[in-house]
Design a binder for these strands. Sequence first.
DNA 1: TATAATGGTGTAATTCTTTACACCTGGTTG
DNA 2: CAACCAGGTGTAAAGAATTACACCATTATA
Lengths: 214, 214
Amino acid sequence: MTSRLTDRQEQVLKAIRQALKRDGRPPSIHELMAELNVSSPNGIAKHLGVLETKGYIHRESGARGIRLVNDNSYQAPPEHTDLAFVPLVGQIAAGSPILAEENVEEVLPVPQSIAGPGVEVFFLKVKGESMIEEGIMSGDLVMVEKCSSVTNGEIAAVMIEDEATVKRFYRRDGKIVLEPANALYEPIVVDPSISRCEVVGRVVGLLRSYRRKF
Amino acid sequence: MTSRLTDRQEQVLKAIRQALKRDGRPPSIHELMAELNVSSPNGIAKHLGVLETKGYIHRESGARGIRLVNDNSYQAPPEHTDLAFVPLVGQIAAGSPILAEENVEEVLPVPQSIAGPGVEVFFLKVKGESMIEEGIMSGDLVMVEKCSSVTNGEIAAVMIEDEATVKRFYRRDGKIVLEPANALYEPIVVDPSISRCEVVGRVVGLLRSYRRKF
DNA sequence: TATAATGGTGTAATTCTTTACACCTGGTTG
DNA sequence: CAACCAGGTGTAAAGAATTACACCATTATA
């Protein structure tokens, strides 16, 4: 299933690697033209298209949007567009915009069909055992779709005072009830008129690695 | 050789570092404008000029010509994006190659740092509640690294007769013990000399969507 | 023998990106 | 106070890069 590259395609890939190393940025099409003695931008553009459908590179819009994709036993199929990059945010302080640059530790690729199209999504690292009965373990990354309110019973990321937490969210008698999924824990009841309590978003996915720590 | 930076200049430098790491290419002035909430290209251009005269960056002509100078934290953009495509396999029949074209339902992008470099990895859909105490729920996709043996106690994908299952794997007294993570289930003990029982691989990750069904 | 895949040439149109210029504001400093 | 520096806004123009289109030659394949 590994789609092989032709000699020429191999040359193009090598030129991209070289340029990245030498220049500290991906090459432009014109630079590749000079490198490979091609006199038309389309000559290069076609190669790039092939390299992308074969899964060796990934292209983003804008200038020099070539990214190398790691060798893997399985290559991306043609026309693969179910891809989104979701930032992993570290400390999220109350008030500050969550997706501010300084909060983003790294960006992880995931299927867009999970992240959702055109919505603000980010990963939050889970600490503690309060949701283990829902299969959310300490160290997992939950994918959160940013929104300011959720329907009763949804799993939500909520900010209480200055701390972010993930719980099942209910609104009862004007109070907010955050229900853990762990028999050892008690529900947290918050009176929004007394304590600062703000929905950050709803949990739409989960990513776990048994290999690396986040 | 290098003079001190102001707070704001430090922020610009940090934004450049993060963009390099995140995007695999230097940021454009417009991207920095968005990051730093500046509404004029000149606002950024001046900072870049200062950073260059102070010796923190070096600029080349052309688009995205920012290079970091003397920066231990980051020299060049990464040669590889942390991206791998992992196939979701449906029915896996005994004997047949797992990654055969006809088994692959779709291909999902994930961080390469989870999938692992250059190994055969695939997604298997989980059915049943037998591993819920390990946070593996029905409908989850487990990422499996193909291998023919695992160490005692690892979570493994195992093929018994013609069915694939995910359990904790132990070898005791010449028998194979597959231990569920659910108090309601009993361990499965298999005598490999009697029943066909074959390790498919070890579980290295997990992907869950609350949005779509797989 | 069609037909597809590979590897091209060339030219425009269109977007990105950078650069240059004019001018503003609030501190700091001689 | 005047001058300078840091940090801006805003706009226009020039330059860099990508994308789209039309068309060509060779080779392998159904």
